[in-house]
């Protein structure tokens, strides 16, 4: 018995050794050099199970088909930084031409991406950036200024540029949302003198709390014309509060969120506008930019990038900008499923 198990163990270990023994076959490089061969673009989502990234993939496939490039799309089933690293390390070995990554954990993945760069693989990021030394460009779906201005302009349009409005945010310390609020307030001051921001309430990124806060705001400010929700759970939360108060249409609701989460309220006329970017275009632009970086036609210092059917995109520093956010409303929301 013991002799056999020891032999089995030795066999197992020698199998490992065998695997290691046949190493140093001509490594990756030969079939991913830019010239002639078909380009292989690898696209990493934060999680495969998310409708948002499924929509990104749709746009990415369209771009890859147009470019005649192979597209590898793989990611963790749920957001899992360990799995993201493993997938990137697998791609390096596979010998892809360029990697486009949405990073679940900025620092966690940057070393893996840097290792890819060391092997001559180009790296761009989209949706969520990594450290700047681990990629050449970040495809930025929306700048803080773009989001802030669009929210404020849309609130002004809905209220006829007149009256009181209130903001519901996630927390008063969330840095990205504070950045948006800064731009909202600057735009308000600059362009809409007859509008007044009466209050800003946090909802801790919870729908129930947002609904509670919205109900309180509605009774505290009877002249309120508009509720602006700038974190995604707050948009349906605010809508539910307005609906239950019987003020649908009288108090406008708009916010930053996914069309799918707000479809019912938009169709009922409770929520007027949902603001986000065109997610499919984000996938399309990412692949176009990744291919251009790999081919050497998009280099540091460029001011503009021609993304084919979605137009010319502005570049700020090392950010390729997707352009203005998109407004989803009663007329167009049915056409989107993320």
């Amino acid at each position: 018995m013991k002799r056999h198990s020891l032999i089995a163990l030795l066999l197992a270990l020698s199998a490992f050794a065998l695997l290691g023994g046949c190493k140093d076959a001509p490594s990756g490089g030969s079939n991913n050099s830019a010239g002639g061969k078909k380009m292989t673009i690898a696209l990493l989502p934060k999680s495969k199970g998310n409708q948002y990234f499924a929509t990104v993939e749709k746009g990415a496939r369209a771009a890859a088909t147009e470019l005649g490039a192979d597209l590898l799309y793989d990611g963790p089933t749920n957001t899992d930084p360990a799995k993201q690293n493993e997938i990137v390390e697998g791609w390096v070995n596979y010998g892809v031409t360029v990697i486009a990554a949405a990073c679940e954990n900025k620092e966690g993945i940057s070393a893996a991406l840097k290792a890819a760069q060391d092997k001559g693989i180009k790296v761009v990021t989209y949706d969520s950036d990594t450290t700047t030394d681990a990629r050449s460009f970040f495809v930025n779906q929306a700048t803080a200024e773009g989001i802030g201005n669009t929210l404020m302009d849309e609130a002004a349009r809905l209220t006829g540029e007149e009256g009181d409005f209130a903001i519901i945010t996630a927390t008063l310390t969330a840095s990205n949302m504070n950045e948006w609020r800064k731009h909202i307030e600057a735009r308000l001051k600059e362009k809409y003198p007859k509008m007044k921001l009466v209050d800003t309430k946090p909802c801790d990124d919870q729908k129930d709390k947002a609904q509670q806060e919205a109900t309180n705001l509605l009774s505290a400010y009877p002249n309120l014309k508009c509720l602006m929700a700038i974190c995604s759970p707050a948009v349906p939360g605010a809508a539910e509060a307005v609906k239950q108060a019987g003020k649908a249409g009288a108090v406008k609701v708009l916010g930053l969120g996914l069309p799918s989460e707000n479809k019912a309220y938009v169709k009922d006329g409770v929520t007027q506008s949902v603001i986000l970017w065109k997610v499919e275009d984000l996938g399309y632009l990412t692949i176009k930019a990744a291919a251009a970086v790999a081919a050497g036609s998009l280099k540091a210092g460029a001011a503009e990038f021609d993304a084919g059917k979605i137009g010319k995109m502005e570049i700020q520093g090392d950010n390729v900008l997707l352009g203005k956010p998109f407004i989803f409303n009663k007329e167009n929301i049915d056409g989107f499923d993320f």
Binding site: F16, K23, S27, G28, N31, E86
Partner: peptide, 28 residues
């Protein structure tokens, strides 16, 4: 052991860069 050897032979034949030191390191 037979399954493992079969896997190694199969992936060496059809896998891309399977038989490399880097891939071996990745697996480990």
């Amino acid at each position: 052991l037979f399954v493992l050897v079969a896997e190694l032979v199969f992936f060496s034949a059809v896998g891309r860069n399977f038989n490399t030191a880097d891939n071996f390191a990745n697996i480990v």
